[in-house]
Nucleic acid binder design. Structure first.
Lengths: 113, 113
DNA sequence: TGAACATATGAACAAACATTCATATGTTTT
DNA sequence: AAAACATATGAATGTTTGTTCATATGTTCA
């Protein structure tokens, strides 16, 4: 950490004052971290087309049931998806419209340029 | 991978057809991954208030110059920020308005509820 | 040119993480 | 109740990643 330049001090203070709290920023990073994995993004992209059971996701993603379940558990802990049981199967879906919106924002960013 | 249930086959096919390509999804995950770190989010939040030099960021974040520079380099490689030199100092800023928008989307998601 | 300053970068290390394998839990069907 | 099916989960493992330390690069000023 270098010494603070006096002429920069007020910029630093002002920026600090306008920024969201550390707690908000930390939680935001955690949310993005959950989006930041290929398998989880593929799951979210699939679920944004509608709810789907675990075995469908395994077939669609061509991944093992265990790997998919582990990531579903991560997504659910982060409240990005929710589940309901129907007989032997569990159906997963996006937790709310906001999740789809965040996903779309990221995808459009990639699609542009 | 379990056997595909015949009655699920068309759902899988249809979902697959509507989803973005694997390439897009992979790149999207990479973008979110860059957002998914507390230090980088704090840097982005600071820069969304305006451009800032490295030493200001170090003071603001109370982190070592090396740690900040390393993360600036990650952010720049991902084209989330850009830099310009002014004398001895490097000034960093968000690469475009889209980056601020993604950040805001994430922050609002956290701030709600 | 040399010293001081600002930033970048390579190597090393510890912590976090995604998948696999094996197995447990929960549900339906016979 | 037992077998079959669908999903969840713990432990182990290899990989990725963020920070630190040391040092290199680039710029200004005397």
């Amino acid at each position: 950490m270098a010494d603070i330049h006096p002429e920069h001090a007020h910029i630093i203070e002002q920026t600090k004052a306008n920024m969201p709290s550390e707690e908000i920023l930390e939680k935001t990073a955690e949310v993005f971290k959950v989006f930041g994995d290929k398998t989880r993004i593929r799951i979210l992209a699939a679920l944004s087309e509608g709810e789907m059971c675990v075995c469908c996701l395994c077939d669609l993603l061509e991944m093992s049931q265990s790997a998919v379940s582990h990531q579903l558990s991560v997504l659910k802990s982060a409240r990005l998806i929710k589940s309901r049981r129907e007989g032997k199967q569990m159906y997963y879906s996006l937790d709310d419209a906001h999740i789809g919106a965040i996903l779309c924002t990221g995808i459009s960013h990639v699609e542009e340029d």
